[in-house]
Design a protein around this nucleic acid. Structure first.
Length: 271
DNA sequence: ACATCTACCTGGAGGC
DNA sequence: TGCCTCCAGGTAGATG
């Protein structure tokens, strides 16, 4: 499931192959993912040159002179570069065909992803305009998190997954970062002290950066490789380890439900 | 404004 | 083996 590190790794893998290339055509095999893929995309993109790639939260932005192609991988999406003419398999919904003989193909079995177009500044798109800070940028600080949680009557795990506050933190890394910070996921956000806020910001950063580093080194080639490109399995400390021993103290990891999602924690290491 | 719930979709796991 | 049910996930949008 692509969280921020997977999206960032995908971006880094694709960028050198896409920037400066010109689109010769667009192929839409599935008209509707989370939202409809704009049917006018082929006309909009033919003969247009890719100028830059960016990431905002978990959105991948492919920038042209007259607008931006906005991609979201949902929870099962992946992007690969393949030679033109490669037959599409099931769940391969969308191709951006380049005039250098390759195409960028979107595969997304669960179809929670999105392909959208925005003319003008993508940051003004309704999906992007109200997003919170990037966890890896300098404005995500201990004081910022402390201030943002003062009036919030909700568990800290739900707060760090709220993209109005900080973007890109999914269930896996929320659980992992809370473990490394020694904070229980159910802790009321408004009761988090300043030092613990700072610590959590630090462990969120470290957890994400570590995943990006591992992903980058374990990643297979984006060009013509198998379907696993873009994903990487880590050695989690708590996520999906209910009943297994804590790697620090051997206590059995607990599982609870918060906001209809599973949380995992060590009752000894996290207070 | 904030908290909580629902819906979307499909592959995989587990039960029978 | 086959069928059934349940679960996972991100996040917009509805509801309280």
């Amino acid at each position: 499931m692509p969280e921020l590190p997977e999206v960032e790794t995908t971006l880094r893998g694709l960028a050198p192959h896409l920037i400066g290339q010109t689109v010769s055509d667009v192929s839409i095999r599935t008209p509707q993912l989370r939202w409809a893929i704009p049917p006018q995309l082929p006309g909009l993109l033919r003969q247009q040159t890719i100028r830059a790639l960016h990431r905002r939260a978990k959105y991948l932005l492919i920038e042209f002179d007259h607008g931006t192609l906005i991609l979201h991988l949902g929870m099962s999406g992946s992007l690969r570069l393949l030679p033109i003419g490669t037959a599409a398999l099931p769940h391969e919904h969308f191709d951006l065909i380049l005039d250098n003989g390759t195409l960028m193909r979107l595969r997304d079995p669960r179809r929670f992803g999105a392909v959208l177009w925005h003319s003008g500044d993508a940051m003004n798109h309704p999906l992007l305009a109200k997003l919170g800070v990037e966890p890896l940028e300098e404005n995500f600080t201990g004081p910022y998190l402390f201030q943002a949680t003062r009036m919030r009557n909700a568990a800290i795990k739900l707060i760090i997954m709220d993209h109005h506050i900080v973007v890109g933190i999914g269930n896996i890394y929320a659980n992992e970062a809370l473990f490394h910070a020694g904070i229980r996921p159910e802790m009321m956000a408004s009761k988090l002290s300043k030092p613990r806020s700072a610590r959590l910001v630090q462990t969120l950063r470290e957890t994400l950066i570590s995943a990006i580093t591992q992903g980058g080194s374990s990643l297979r080639d984006y060009v013509g490789s198998d379907g696993n490109a873009g994903y990487f399995q880590q050695n989690y400390y708590v996520y999906d380890r209910a009943g297994e021993p804590c790697r620090t103290c051997n206590t059995a990891i607990k599982q609870i439900t918060q906001g209809q999602r599973s949380s995992f924690y060590c009752a000894v290491c996290q207070k």
